[in-house]
Amino acid sequence: MSATEIHASLCTSAADEWTALVATAVVGTDRHPLPPAALGWDVWGAHPDPAVALLDRAVAIVAARRAGTLAAPPLPTPPPAPTDHRPACPPACIARLHRLLAGEHDELLAEWLQLCAESGTRPAWSALPALLLRGRRKPEFDLLVRHVAGARATWLAEALPELGIRPAPKAGGSVVMMQPPARVPDSGATVAAIVLSFHERAATWAAAPQLRHLVISLEPRWLAALIADLAGLPFDDQSQRTRTELLRLAEFRDAMVREFHASAPTDSTVPIDGERVYGDPHG
């Protein structure tokens, strides 16, 4: 017999041996006699106690099977997704996206996606399911995600139907793609107004949502000025919480914009309006 034949024969007899052992063990050796070992599996002297003998023989099969496990045959894989030539956005941006998806300042999510599209990069594909799932009840957000993700979103919905992603909503229908908040017409004046609200003791916790909205509507180049002004305010017990909240938001947004700016590829096919978004406020 060749080695392959011996192997095949041992595999067959191992299956027989195991089946016999399981059948006997289920009923119990008290009620069912232990059949003799299958060909090639008479590996050690039979113990006089049939229960011990059964276990001894089972150990041989189990050890051989664990050590001799083979991979299953190759499987058909899903059709490859359409090629996407955009580079993935930088690791810092991906890390920030995960923080946004975890719920931290998630009102900035739309702006993150827009920055990503403008920089000519794509989101990390591993974040795509979370983005798509978030869009399941918000069609306008879904449109934005699919706009940024491109063909991979449609591919994923088909490859993984159990994810429960609906087909892409039709553009041009009643749903309009989500946009980041419209920029305030005069960011400098808005920064001054925010700071003034603190001086006038109007920046209560109740006013925080409106102030937050102002912060995310500023031209990003004014964020540094806002951060400096807020940090320089004298301590005030009443508005302390609002101030901390606004500072965190402004710093988060400032960092988010800078991360994309720092990494924008120079050979990007998507034009970037650097002056509008990233210009130096003091320049």
Partner: peptide
Amino acid sequence: ALSDSTGSIPIVPGFWRLAELVAESGGS
């Protein structure tokens, strides 16, 4: 499962972050 030309191995049942792997792979 995970598959290549040499064979395949099943992913444990109940692994809940499968979608991320599938999305990242894009069939590759």
